[in-house]
Protein backbone atom coordinates (compact mmCIF):
# COMPACT_ATOMS: atom_id res chain seq x y z
CA UNK A 1 0.00 0.00 0.00
CA UNK A 2 2.72 2.39 1.08
CA UNK A 3 4.75 1.36 -1.94
CA UNK A 4 1.80 2.30 -4.19
CA UNK A 5 1.57 5.66 -2.58
CA UNK A 6 5.30 6.28 -3.03
CA UNK A 7 5.04 5.26 -6.67
CA UNK A 8 2.11 7.58 -7.22
CA UNK A 9 3.88 10.45 -5.57
CA UNK A 10 7.09 9.98 -7.49
CA UNK A 11 5.22 9.48 -10.75
CA UNK A 12 5.79 5.82 -11.61
CA UNK A 13 2.22 4.75 -12.02
CA UNK A 14 2.88 1.44 -13.74
CA UNK A 15 2.32 0.20 -17.30
CA UNK A 16 -0.75 2.39 -17.94
CA UNK A 17 0.81 5.53 -16.50
CA UNK A 18 2.81 8.37 -17.95
CA UNK A 19 5.84 6.50 -19.22
CA UNK A 20 7.39 9.58 -20.77
CA UNK A 21 7.76 11.36 -17.40
CA UNK A 22 11.34 11.70 -16.28
CA UNK A 23 12.14 9.42 -13.32
CA UNK A 24 12.83 11.41 -10.15
CA UNK A 25 16.39 11.88 -8.98
CA UNK A 26 17.88 9.95 -6.08
CA UNK A 27 17.68 13.02 -3.87
CA UNK A 28 13.97 13.47 -4.60
CA UNK A 29 13.34 9.85 -3.69
CA UNK A 30 15.26 10.24 -0.46
CA UNK A 31 13.30 13.35 0.45
CA UNK A 32 9.99 11.62 -0.16
CA UNK A 33 10.99 8.57 1.85
CA UNK A 34 12.20 10.76 4.68
CA UNK A 35 8.91 12.62 4.59
CA UNK A 36 7.19 9.31 5.31
CA UNK A 37 9.51 8.14 8.05
CA UNK A 38 10.25 11.44 9.82
CA UNK A 39 6.75 12.11 11.19
CA UNK A 40 6.73 8.63 12.69
CA UNK A 41 10.06 9.22 14.40
CA UNK A 42 8.95 12.63 15.67
CA UNK A 43 5.68 11.21 16.92
CA UNK A 44 7.53 8.44 18.74
CA UNK A 45 9.92 10.91 20.35
CA UNK A 46 7.04 13.15 21.45
CA UNK A 47 5.26 10.12 22.90
CA UNK A 48 8.38 9.05 24.79
CA UNK A 49 8.81 12.56 26.16
CA UNK A 50 5.18 12.61 27.27
CA UNK A 51 5.48 9.26 29.02
CA UNK A 52 8.87 9.62 30.66
CA UNK A 53 9.19 13.37 31.15
CA UNK A 54 5.65 14.56 31.84
CA UNK A 55 6.76 17.49 34.03
CA UNK A 56 9.25 18.88 31.54
CA UNK A 57 7.01 21.81 30.65
CA UNK A 58 6.04 22.53 34.24
CA UNK A 59 9.69 22.46 35.25
CA UNK A 60 10.46 24.94 32.50
CA UNK A 61 8.13 27.41 34.26
CA UNK A 62 9.40 26.36 37.67
CA UNK A 63 12.95 27.31 36.83
CA UNK A 64 11.74 30.85 36.15
CA UNK A 65 10.34 31.07 39.67
CA UNK A 66 13.49 29.87 41.43
CA UNK A 67 14.32 32.08 44.41
CA UNK A 68 17.19 34.55 44.20
CA UNK A 69 19.23 32.84 46.91
CA UNK A 70 19.46 29.64 44.91
CA UNK A 71 20.70 31.18 41.68
CA UNK A 72 22.65 34.14 43.00
CA UNK A 73 21.45 37.70 43.35
CA UNK A 74 23.21 38.84 40.18
CA UNK A 75 21.54 36.13 38.10
CA UNK A 76 18.24 37.34 39.53
CA UNK A 77 19.05 40.95 38.60
CA UNK A 78 19.87 39.81 35.09
CA UNK A 79 16.43 38.27 34.82
CA UNK A 80 14.48 41.15 36.41
CA UNK A 81 15.90 43.87 34.24
CA UNK A 82 12.69 45.09 32.61
CA UNK A 83 11.54 48.69 32.27
CA UNK A 84 8.79 48.24 34.88
CA UNK A 85 9.39 46.77 38.34
CA UNK A 86 7.24 43.76 39.24
CA UNK A 87 5.23 45.29 42.06
CA UNK A 88 4.73 48.77 40.66
CA UNK A 89 1.24 50.04 41.54
CA UNK A 90 0.58 52.99 39.25
CA UNK A 91 -0.25 52.57 35.58
CA UNK A 92 2.72 53.03 33.30
CA UNK A 93 2.46 54.36 29.78
CA UNK A 94 4.68 54.04 26.73
CA UNK A 95 6.98 56.85 27.92
CA UNK A 96 8.56 54.45 30.37
CA UNK A 97 8.86 51.38 28.20
CA UNK A 98 9.58 52.73 24.73
CA UNK A 99 13.02 52.08 23.30
CA UNK A 100 15.32 55.01 22.58
CA UNK A 101 17.65 54.06 19.74
CA UNK A 102 19.38 57.45 19.70
CA UNK A 103 20.61 58.12 23.23
CA UNK A 104 23.72 59.53 24.90
CA UNK A 105 26.39 56.84 25.11
CA UNK A 106 26.67 57.51 28.88
CA UNK A 107 23.38 55.65 29.48
CA UNK A 108 24.96 52.40 28.26
CA UNK A 109 26.84 52.20 31.56
CA UNK A 110 24.98 54.59 33.86
CA UNK A 111 21.45 53.36 33.05
CA UNK A 112 18.21 55.30 32.82
CA UNK A 113 18.48 56.53 36.43
CA UNK A 114 22.10 57.69 36.50
CA UNK A 115 21.84 59.94 39.57
CA UNK A 116 22.00 58.02 42.81
CA UNK A 117 24.32 59.81 45.21
CA UNK A 118 22.25 62.69 46.53
CA UNK A 119 19.26 61.17 48.23
CA UNK A 120 17.05 64.27 48.21
CA UNK A 121 17.44 65.21 44.59
CA UNK A 122 18.36 62.09 42.67
CA UNK A 123 14.81 61.47 41.40
CA UNK A 124 14.49 65.09 40.28
CA UNK A 125 17.84 65.02 38.51
CA UNK A 126 16.85 61.72 36.91
CA UNK A 127 13.68 63.12 35.39
CA UNK A 128 15.79 65.72 33.58
CA UNK A 129 17.53 62.78 32.01
CA UNK A 130 14.27 62.18 30.11
CA UNK A 131 14.74 65.31 28.00
CA UNK A 132 18.32 66.43 28.51
CA UNK A 133 21.34 64.54 27.26
CA UNK A 134 23.91 64.03 30.03
CA UNK A 135 26.36 66.39 28.36
CA UNK A 136 24.00 69.34 28.66
CA UNK A 137 24.93 69.57 32.33
CA UNK A 138 28.12 67.54 32.42
CA UNK A 139 29.98 69.38 29.65
CA UNK A 140 30.12 72.98 30.74
CA UNK A 141 30.01 75.76 28.17
CA UNK A 142 32.69 78.37 28.58
CA UNK A 143 31.12 81.80 29.10
CA UNK A 144 32.76 83.30 26.03
CA UNK A 145 32.25 80.30 23.73
CA UNK A 146 29.91 81.52 20.98
CA UNK A 147 30.14 78.29 18.95
CA UNK A 148 28.38 76.32 21.72
CA UNK A 149 24.57 75.98 21.60
CA UNK A 150 21.77 73.44 22.04
CA UNK A 151 19.46 71.49 19.77
CA UNK A 152 16.66 68.93 20.00
CA UNK A 153 17.74 65.48 18.77
CA UNK A 154 15.02 62.97 17.91
CA UNK A 155 15.26 59.86 20.12
CA UNK A 156 14.29 57.52 17.31
CA UNK A 157 16.04 58.96 14.27
CA UNK A 158 18.74 61.30 15.58
CA UNK A 159 17.34 64.15 13.43
CA UNK A 160 17.99 67.63 14.84
CA UNK A 161 15.44 70.38 15.26
CA UNK A 162 14.96 73.72 16.99
CA UNK A 163 11.25 73.10 17.52
CA UNK A 164 9.79 71.66 20.68
CA UNK A 165 7.14 68.96 20.42
CA UNK A 166 5.15 67.50 23.32
CA UNK A 167 5.43 68.89 26.79
CA UNK A 168 6.33 68.34 30.44
CA UNK A 169 9.03 65.76 29.90
CA UNK A 170 7.09 63.89 27.21
CA UNK A 171 9.11 64.97 24.23
CA UNK A 172 10.02 62.77 21.26
CA UNK A 173 13.47 64.40 21.34
CA UNK A 174 16.21 65.29 23.81
CA UNK A 175 18.26 68.43 24.11
CA UNK A 176 21.92 67.92 23.17
CA UNK A 177 24.75 70.46 23.11
CA UNK A 178 26.19 71.28 19.68
CA UNK A 179 29.25 73.12 18.49
CA UNK A 180 29.74 75.02 15.26
CA UNK A 181 32.94 73.81 13.64
CA UNK A 182 35.34 75.81 11.46
CA UNK A 183 33.43 74.89 8.29
CA UNK A 184 30.21 76.25 9.89
CA UNK A 185 29.03 72.68 10.33
CA UNK A 186 27.02 71.88 13.44
CA UNK A 187 28.32 68.94 15.41
CA UNK A 188 26.74 67.25 18.43
CA UNK A 189 29.13 67.27 21.36
CA UNK A 190 30.03 63.80 22.56
CA UNK A 191 32.48 64.06 25.44
CA UNK A 192 32.89 60.29 25.37
CA UNK A 193 32.92 59.19 21.77
CA UNK A 194 31.35 55.91 20.76
CA UNK A 195 34.63 54.36 19.62
CA UNK A 196 36.30 54.99 22.97
CA UNK A 197 33.26 53.67 24.85
CA UNK A 198 33.11 50.54 22.68
CA UNK A 199 36.84 49.92 23.19
CA UNK A 200 36.40 50.33 26.94
CA UNK A 201 33.50 47.87 27.00
CA UNK A 202 35.52 45.39 24.96
CA UNK A 203 38.60 45.55 27.17
CA UNK A 204 37.15 46.20 30.61
CA UNK A 205 37.17 42.55 31.70
CA UNK A 206 40.90 42.40 31.05
CA UNK A 207 41.74 45.43 33.20
CA UNK A 208 43.27 45.09 36.64
CA UNK A 209 41.70 47.26 39.36
CA UNK A 210 44.29 50.00 38.84
CA UNK A 211 43.97 49.84 35.07
CA UNK A 212 40.23 50.14 35.45
CA UNK A 213 40.56 53.29 37.57
CA UNK A 214 42.94 54.76 34.99
CA UNK A 215 40.60 53.84 32.13
CA UNK A 216 37.64 55.51 33.85
CA UNK A 217 39.55 58.73 34.30
CA UNK A 218 40.61 58.65 30.67
CA UNK A 219 37.08 57.86 29.48
CA UNK A 220 35.61 60.80 31.43
CA UNK A 221 38.38 63.31 30.77
CA UNK A 222 36.11 65.66 28.83
CA UNK A 223 33.42 65.67 31.51
CA UNK A 224 33.26 68.92 33.50
CA UNK A 225 34.36 68.57 37.10
CA UNK A 226 31.49 70.75 38.21
CA UNK A 227 28.17 70.08 36.48
CA UNK A 228 25.70 72.82 35.63
CA UNK A 229 23.48 73.41 38.65
CA UNK A 230 19.68 73.76 38.60
CA UNK A 231 19.56 77.52 39.21
CA UNK A 232 21.96 78.21 36.36
CA UNK A 233 19.26 77.18 33.86
CA UNK A 234 16.12 77.98 35.83
CA UNK A 235 16.52 81.74 35.84
CA UNK A 236 16.05 84.61 33.45
CA UNK A 237 18.84 84.72 30.83
CA UNK A 238 20.24 81.49 32.22
CA UNK A 239 22.58 78.82 30.90
CA UNK A 240 20.55 78.15 27.81
CA UNK A 241 17.93 79.95 25.87
CA UNK A 242 14.60 78.15 26.28
CA UNK A 243 12.92 80.35 23.65
CA UNK A 244 15.59 79.51 21.09
CA UNK A 245 14.81 75.82 21.65
CA UNK A 246 11.20 76.46 20.69
CA UNK A 247 9.55 76.66 24.11
CA UNK A 248 6.51 78.95 24.02
CA UNK A 249 6.67 82.14 26.04
CA UNK A 250 4.43 81.01 28.89
CA UNK A 251 6.47 77.84 29.32
CA UNK A 252 9.70 79.83 29.37
CA UNK A 253 8.16 82.05 32.05
CA UNK A 254 7.20 78.96 34.03
CA UNK A 255 10.64 77.37 33.73
CA UNK A 256 12.25 80.52 35.03
CA UNK A 257 9.50 81.39 37.53
CA UNK A 258 9.83 81.66 41.29
CA UNK A 259 7.72 78.50 41.53
CA UNK A 260 10.71 76.53 40.27
CA UNK A 261 13.53 78.71 41.54
CA UNK A 262 11.84 78.79 44.96
CA UNK A 263 11.75 75.03 45.02
CA UNK A 264 15.41 74.86 44.03
CA UNK A 265 16.22 77.08 46.99
CA UNK A 266 14.49 74.56 49.24
CA UNK A 267 16.61 71.79 47.80
CA UNK A 268 19.75 73.86 47.87
CA UNK A 269 19.94 73.55 51.64
CA UNK A 270 20.09 69.80 51.17
CA UNK A 271 22.13 69.61 48.04
CA UNK A 272 24.89 71.38 46.28
CA UNK A 273 26.56 69.47 43.49
CA UNK A 274 29.82 67.85 44.38
CA UNK A 275 32.83 68.03 42.16
CA UNK A 276 32.87 64.84 40.16
CA UNK A 277 35.93 62.69 40.68
CA UNK A 278 36.03 59.47 38.73
CA UNK A 279 39.39 58.29 39.93
CA UNK A 280 40.02 58.83 43.59
CA UNK A 281 36.97 57.01 45.06
Amino acid sequence: MKKDIIKRVIGRSGPGGQKDRKPPSKTAKLVIKTAFVLPIILFALWLLKLVYFPHAEARKHESVAKPAAEQGIFTQILRDDGPIPKEHFHIIDEHISQAEPYHPICLECHGSYPHSKEKKVRAILNFHNGFLACMVCHVRKKPDDKSFSFVWVDRQTGATSMRVEGGFGKYPAKIFPIRETAGRRLEIIHPVDEKAAAEFMRLKNQFSADQMAKAKIKLHENISKKPVFCNECHKKDGYFDFAKLGFPGNRVDHLTSTEITGMIEKYETFYMPETIDFGSK
Binding site: H115, A123, I124, N126, F127, H128, F131
Partner: peptide, 8 residues
Protein backbone atom coordinates in the same frame (compact mmCIF):
# COMPACT_ATOMS: atom_id res chain seq x y z
CA UNK B 1 4.27 64.15 35.58
CA UNK B 2 7.80 63.73 34.23
CA UNK B 3 8.30 60.15 32.96
CA UNK B 4 11.96 60.06 34.00
CA UNK B 5 11.13 60.65 37.66
CA UNK B 6 12.57 57.71 39.58
CA UNK B 7 15.63 56.17 41.14
CA UNK B 8 17.06 52.97 42.53
Amino acid sequence: RYPGMGRF
